[in-house]
Nucleic acid binder design. Structure first.
Lengths: 197, 197, 197, 197
DNA sequence: CATGAATGAGGGTTCATTCAT
DNA sequence: CATGAATGAACCCTCATTCAT
């Protein structure tokens, strides 16, 4: 199982393309192969099966993104700043690749439990980044220290994800990155230590 | 196309049951028919096709719920109170019917775009309830009047939905209704008019 | 899984037909369905899968034959006579249905171990008939009582089978039933108690 | 098309090995190549195609055996003695190479008609040896001169082959060579000129 | 109204073979 | 001579839907 090489990337990109245009259930392996300009069988030299290909699509795109985001966060000094960076990077990623946004927000969700479990594994690393921010904010006494971290994480991820999904479902008709700031403000408010107010 | 009768309800309930237990992709029409104690063909006397059945499942269960929620909200005098009621009722609904929670939070999402679009139509009525609360809160000057209502709605729905989904994915291992209060607190904070602080 | 009905027989007969004409590896389910004038899917109402169909073909044809043979043997009074009846019935069966002979002697052998194991199960009942004849002949002191029964059975079955296979491989060019007598003579000689000679 | 060289033998041996262990249908060209420590493509420098390889396997192993058997027979003075030698050598060959016995008795039979026809060609030389023995025995007036030679040959080969196949199917659990004598006795009896008895 | 036997389209995957290096 | 990456044809089975009874 080769996991590198130009054909590997071709196939990943073709998969994003085909899924975005035709939808998950109309993305036959043969269609992806054609789009990637390789033979059907070639896909199985690089991926164990179709599910492996789809997981890899998510992994390649999100894995890199999560890493980049993690690195970027290190350069920020406060939890509030880090949260803004996270949201901005998330929205920018999707905005820079509309096809990818369709795939991750809509198409890759209509899969069986097994596939989503594997996608969930990748997502966990993203959720960990959120947890780190929350922890730091609570240590800084900027976020409410009595908060249930899990709930806070769900609010952050739920809000970001719902915002992104709505944007995609509205055919990218408005500007997503510019929503980072207001979303950030709402979230910071929601998480804030309001003890003194 | 009969839309009423004892068999209609039998089929709807059987569908929830089968989907919750076997998962969306293992819920063949014949299996639902068997569970409902009717013949396969009978399903097509009550529903146009399988998609129509699935939409109807969502419609029947959520439609009633949305109506009940709307009525309940009328009895509350403030936006903050209404939001709490909304969250509580949402969490209670899912908590009272674990099978339904599996179906709506996990299984019914792994469907094609067309089906989800129709489900989205039903959801709009729910989102309208949220919008009404937001509007009222802003008029009361309790919620930030400069907020983008759509974003606020997405935060509310995204947080509630993500919280519910996580609860289901964790096999209902903890108590969902008791999360209504902390979720409510976070959301109210997030939405609040903090102008003076 | 229906195991009876006109369609069941149609499919079995179509399978024999298609396999005899096109060969085992060119006998696709769709081809058999077409020959049986049913839809592809109908085959799966009567058979679990393709292997089940093939085993059933053998079962239906040989099962009946073995039963008939067993009954016929009861009417014969000596082991020698019974052996002749067995050989004659075996050769007559194949002679009366050339297509079946192609299927059992040539095509059904080029299958995987699993399928052949199941076919072997059916064959065991036939081999038991041979064992009964041998036992009787040894009790009558007509067959050599010191013989290894298994070897004797293998000689009988091996000879009959090889004779039949050669006949099929020679395109049924000569008359098989008329070989029953000389084959019988050789076998009886081979099995005889020659103690006194 | 090279038909000689160390790689040629490596491939032949690898084929026997792989087929015996994994079975005919799990013996892909790539697996045989790997076992032979050559590249897939290299096989096509030595064999026209997979079928040619399989025929060659049979040819190489049986060809040598048939020659050796033929030579050995020359040293025996009577047909009866020759027949014993043939059976003993046949059983010894299989007993000395269990993997080969699996391949020739079980695996190589589950092939298409074309391949078996070619294997039949090789076998003809073996059957000729039997014919020679029969002819000699009839000339010696030891075997029945009125016998149908083809039937006699089929009895001999059918019995030997069936005995060998059963031994393999019983996982070589008993000693095959020691069956040569009783098999020989039965066959000689079967073939004998019993005119006087 | 209700039945359930019958339909038939559609796709992921394997693997013998080729050929550029 | 040798390699091994790439090719692409081929097929079993499922299941939503229909319709004669």
């Amino acid at each position: 199982m080769k996991r590198k090489g130009p054909k590997y990337d071709q196939i990943i990109d073709a998969a994003v393309n085909v899924i975005a245009i035709h939808g998950y259930h109309q993305s036959q392996v043969s269609k992806i192969a054609k789009q990637a300009s390789v033979a059907d069988g070639t896909i199985y030299l690089y991926f164990k099966n179709k599910e492996d290909l789809l997981v890899s699509v998510f992994n390649e795109k999100m894995g890199t993104f999560i890493e980049k985001t993690g690195n970027e966060l290190k350069g920020k000094s406060s939890a509030v700043e880090k949260l803004l960076t996270l949201i901005e990077m998330h929205f920018n990623l999707l905005n820079e690749d509309h096809q990818l946004s369709i795939v991750t927000q809509l198409e890759l969700r209509q899969t069986n439990r097994a596939l989503r479990a594997k996608i969930g594994e990748v997502l966990k690393r993203y959720l960990s980044l959120i947890d780190l921010i929350l922890k730091e904010g609570m240590e800084e006494n900027v976020f409410d220290r009595t908060m249930d971290t899990r709930l806070a994480r769900q609010m952050i991820f739920g809000t970001i994800d719902e915002t992104a999904t709505n944007w995609v479902m509205n055919d990218h008709r408005y500007d997503l990155p510019s929503l980072a700031l207001p979303v950030h403000r709402m979230l910071v408010n929601g998480l804030s230590n309001n003890a003194g107010s």
